[in-house]
């Protein structure tokens, strides 16, 4: 550049900032304005399908955090395991998704929910009943592309044209 260091650099910088003053800001205002999160979102809770689960315990073995606790009993008559206790401590869970990928019977999913803050640590433990799918607790499409199709598409910042240039 021939015109380096004649104050041109500073002037150019000033035009860039003043132009931003006239553009739309990129931010959105969270509680009122909500964006759709990813279809594969790994929510802060796990969803468990009681019918499909066989109590094999693969998920608990795979979990790197040891956040899953399963206690099973044998049902001799039906020749299968009964899941007595299935607990996930979401306070320890790092939402890595390995358990969902590992489950051989497609019984474990992520939830599509992200506002799961609690006031006490103990409340973070999800028991059997809190893990079932409900209308509030939607299943996320992580690792299950067919479930992903049912969810609304993600809002992308690349598609939000806020800048006119």
């Amino acid at each position: 550049m021939k015109f380096e260091r004649y104050g041109i650099g500073i002037a150019k910088g000033l035009t860039v900032t003043i132009r931003h003053l006239l553009r739309h800001p990129t931010v959105n205002q969270y509680p009122e304005q909500r964006l759709n999160i990813s279809r594969r979102f790994r929510g802060n809770e796990l969803i468990w399908n009681r019918e499909k689960c066989t109590g094999c315990g693969t998920c608990a073995k795979t979990c790197p955090q040891g956040a899953i606790e399963i206690v099973t009993a044998t049902d001799m008559a039906e020749n299968k395991y009964i899941v007595d206790k299935y607990e996930i401590d979401t306070g320890y869970c790092i939402q890595c998704g390995l358990c969902v990928e590992a489950c051989p019977y497609e019984a474990l999913y992520f939830s599509h929910n992200f506002e799961c803050a609690r006031y006490r640590r103990g409340e973070l433990v999800q028991g059997k009943e809190e893990m079932l799918e409900t209308p509030q607790r939607k299943v996320s499409g992580y690792f299950y592309p067919d479930k992903a199709q049912k969810l609304p598409g993600q809002t992308l910042l690349v598609e939000k044209i806020t800048e006119k240039r």
Binding site: T17, L21, P25, T26, Q29
Partner: peptide, 13 residues
């Protein structure tokens, strides 16, 4: 506010 808008934010609102 002015700084927020120049930085592509909203500023306190």
């Amino acid at each position: 506010r002015g700084m927020g808008r120049m930085q592509s934010r909203l500023g306190p609102n």
